[in-house]
Structures are given as C-alpha cells and as structure tokens.
Amino acid sequence: MNCRLGCGACCIAPSISSPIPGMPEGKKAGQRCVQLDKNNLCKLFGDPSRPAVCLQFKACEDVCGSSNAEAMWRITQLEALT
C-alpha cells in the first residue's frame, strides 16, 4: 500500500522516544510532530536526520485502514496496547 499523502496519522498518534529535529525528547502519543507541515507532509522525508523509527514505518492496510480517520483510530489503539 502507498502512504495516503496528507494523512499524518503516523506523525501524530504514536509516541516516538527517539530525538526528532526540533523535538530532542521525542514526542508523546497524540502530539503532532513539529516536522509535520500544514498539509500533513513530513518536512524531513528523504532527509538523513529523519528518525529511524519513521524510516522503518511502512503504510499497510492493517495499520492505516481505508481512510485518514481510520488510520488515526487504528494507530491510537495500537499505541494504547503498547
């Protein structure tokens, strides 16, 4: 599956414990990443400073569902389970 441009759920719903440029302590679950632009696109996409956890994320229907809202719900639920 290809990532839905403008979704941003993977940059908002999960916590990220590793440093992110502009967020040296990472981010909490539900907190919008500072590297997510107004169109919900990653400003670090393709940049070597992008966190490894972000590089490793691959969009798939099991996680992202069939809509942006479903992706946010599913990733939030997965975060709550971990």
Score class of each variant (00 low, 15 high):
1 M>F: 11
2 N>V: 12
4 R>P: 00
4 R>S: 11
5 L>G: 09
5 L>A: 10
5 L>P: 06
6 G>Q: 09
6 G>A: 12
7 C>F: 04
7 C>V: 08
8 G>I: 01
9 A>I: 02
10 C>L: 15
10 C>Q: 00
12 I>S: 12
14 P>D: 03
16 I>M: 11
16 I>C: 02
17 S>R: 04
18 S>Y: 05
20 I>L: 06
20 I>S: 00
20 I>F: 01
20 I>T: 01
22 G>D: 09
23 M>Q: 15
23 M>D: 05
24 P>L: 06
25 E>Q: 13
26 G>A: 07
26 G>Y: 00
27 K>E: 01
28 K>F: 07
28 K>V: 05
28 K>G: 08
30 G>D: 04
33 C>I: 01
34 V>I: 09
34 V>G: 08
34 V>A: 09
34 V>Y: 08
34 V>N: 09
35 Q>H: 07
36 L>G: 02
36 L>R: 02
37 D>F: 04
38 K>V: 03
38 K>I: 03
38 K>R: 09
38 K>L: 04
39 N>W: 06
40 N>F: 02
40 N>D: 06
42 C>L: 07
43 K>V: 13
45 F>N: 14
46 G>C: 09
48 P>N: 13
48 P>H: 11
48 P>S: 14
49 S>Y: 05
49 S>A: 13
50 R>Q: 14
50 R>S: 11
51 P>Q: 12
51 P>N: 13
51 P>Y: 02
52 A>W: 07
52 A>S: 09
52 A>G: 06
53 V>F: 02
53 V>S: 10
53 V>G: 07
54 C>W: 00
54 C>I: 06
55 L>Q: 15
55 L>T: 15
56 Q>W: 11
56 Q>K: 14
57 F>N: 11
59 A>Y: 14
59 A>R: 08
60 C>E: 15
60 C>T: 15
63 V>F: 10
64 C>I: 01
66 S>D: 10
67 S>F: 01
68 N>C: 14
68 N>S: 15
68 N>I: 08
69 A>D: 12
69 A>M: 10
71 A>F: 01
71 A>T: 06
73 W>F: 14
73 W>M: 05
74 R>P: 02
75 I>N: 00
75 I>V: 10
76 T>Q: 03
76 T>N: 06
77 Q>N: 13
77 Q>A: 14
78 L>E: 01
78 L>P: 00
78 L>C: 10
79 E>S: 07
80 A>K: 15
80 A>G: 14
81 L>W: 07
